[in-house]
Amino acid sequence: MDTILKRSTAFHPQIDGQTKVVNQTMIHLLRGYNSKHPKTWDESLPYLQFAFNRAIQGSTLKSPFEQRYKARHNKHHVPCNFKEGDLVWLHLEKERLIGEGKKLKSIHYGRFKILKQIGDNAFQLELPPYMPMYSVINAENLKLFEPSLLDDDLDEDTFLPSVDDLKIE
């Protein structure tokens, strides 16, 4: 939904229809909620904002909260095209690496075998025993392992991090 809200001020009230409806709705909510104590209207704004954002809208049949965060979730969703037995690269965050020159160390390590799928977006990997991390990894941190055509005779430990590269927690 590519909507653009126009900001307004008291001296230049040029706003779009959507903002006008939201403002009217908030005024109605404030009147109903603060009818007995009108001077404390500012204290109730967070509660009314939450109520408005959780209310289902008639035009979309969804709440504003659901629309906003579902779109954000879908934007970052990684399609899972992995299956059990696949070999994958594992992306390690820089915080897991230690030692001199950690900024220049590789952050992708691999050939890790997928043992099983857990849920929609997580996989259990066969990690070496010296890697101090949980073996269930989100698909966002995995990439299908595709060896280079030039690397015919790679030994199995070529792309694995060393014990000196990782934090042991």
Rank of each mutant, 00 (worst) to 15 (best):
P129K: 09
Y33K: 09
P161R: 04
E95H: 13
Q24E: 10
L149Y: 13
T3C: 11
T25I: 10
F112Q: 02
I15N: 02
L45I: 15
E66Y: 06
I107C: 14
D153V: 11
I107Q: 15
H12Q: 14
P64E: 07
G32A: 10
S44K: 14
K143G: 05
D157H: 05
I56D: 03
V88Q: 05
M131A: 07
E84I: 12
L166D: 02
L30G: 00
A139D: 00
P129Y: 06
F123N: 02
N121H: 06
R31E: 15
T9G: 14
S63T: 08
F50R: 15
F82Y: 12
D151Q: 10
D120K: 12
Y33C: 13
P46N: 06
A51Q: 04
V163R: 10
R7S: 07
F123H: 08
R7W: 07
L87W: 07
S106H: 07
K167N: 01
E93T: 12
K113L: 09
Q24Y: 03
P128C: 02
K116I: 00
I27D: 11
N81P: 02
Y134T: 06
D164K: 15
S8R: 08
A10P: 06
L144C: 07
E156T: 10
I107V: 15
P38I: 06
G17H: 01
G58M: 00
I98Y: 01
T158I: 11
F123Y: 14
H12S: 12
K6Y: 08
N121F: 02
F11I: 14
V78C: 13
T60N: 08
V22N: 06
E66D: 05
K94F: 03
V136S: 03
A55V: 03
D86K: 07
